[in-house]
Amino acid sequence: MFFTQLKHELWKLFGKKRTYIGFGVFLLAPNAVVLMFRFSNAANGIRRTLEGGGYPVADFITAETIATQVVIPVAYLLLPLYVALVGGDLVAKETEDGTLRMILARPVSRLRLLTLKWLAGLIFSLMLSVCLGAFGLAFASLWFPQGGLFAVQVELGGSGGFSVLAPSDGLWSYALAHVLLASKAISVMSLAFLFSCFNMKPAAATILALSVLFANAILMSIPWFADYKGWFITHHLNLWQWVFLQPTPWTRIVESLCLLVGYNVTFFVVGAAAFQVRDIKS
C-alpha cells in the first residue's frame, strides 16, 4: 500500500512538465560548456596549472576533468534552484490547486502523506544529481578521451590548490562525488519542502529556501565568520567536492553527511509539525 501510494506520488511529480526543466537544462548546459572547452581556450588555465606542476597535460585534459569543471558551477547554482522548485511545490502547489483537500478527504494521515511526498522529492533529487553527473561525463566523453582527473580544490581550511587523480581513482571519485552531490540536492529540497508545509505559495517556499542558502553563503564568505563555517549548512553542502581532495578527508565527509541527515530530519519534523496543526481550507 505504501509503495503504491509512493508510485502515485511519483506519477504526480513526473507527470508535470516543470519537473523536467532541470533535466532539460542539464542536457543542454553541460553540452554547451563542454563545446566551449573543446573549441575555445577555456582549458588553457588547466593546461598551465598542470604544466606548472609538471604533470603530462594530455593525461589530465580528459572527459573526467572537463565533466568536473562543467558540473561544479551547475551544481552550485542550478541544481539548488531546480530541487528547491520541486521541493517548494510538493505541498504548497497541491494546497494552492485544491487537490490537497481532495486527498485529505481520504483516511490518509497527514504524516504519511508528507512522508510520501518527501520520498518522492528525495527520488527526484537523487535522479537529478545522478543525471547531472552522467550527462556531464557522457557529453565530455564525446570530445575528450578518458583518463585522469584534475580538480581545483575547494576550501577546507583555506587551501586553494588542485588535485590530480589517476584514471582509475578519477572515475571512481567522480562517481562517488555525484552520489554525495545527491545529499546536497536532497537537503535543499528538504529545506524548500519545510517552507512548503506552511501556509504559503509554492513560489514563496522556493524563494525562501534559496534565500536561506544565499544568506548562508554570503555570511560564510565574510572573513569574520571563517572560524564558524561549520555552523553554516552551505559549508556542509559542499562535501561532495571534498572527494576530490588529496588525501580525501573521509572523517570530515562522514561528519558533514551526518549533519546533513540531522538538518533533513529537522526540516521534515518542523514541516510536519506545522502541517499537522494547519487547517486545510479551500
Binding site: 487537490t99 478527504a105 479551500s282
Partner: peptide, 17 residues
C-alpha cells in the same frame, strides 16, 4: 473516513493526468 466520499465545490484534479 474509511467509508466516506466527498465532493467539493469546483472539483479540482491533476489536469495533466
Amino acid at each position: 473516513l474509511a467509508k466516506v466520499g466527498a465532493i467539493f465545490e469546483t472539483p479540482v484534479f491533476y489536469d495533466y493526468l
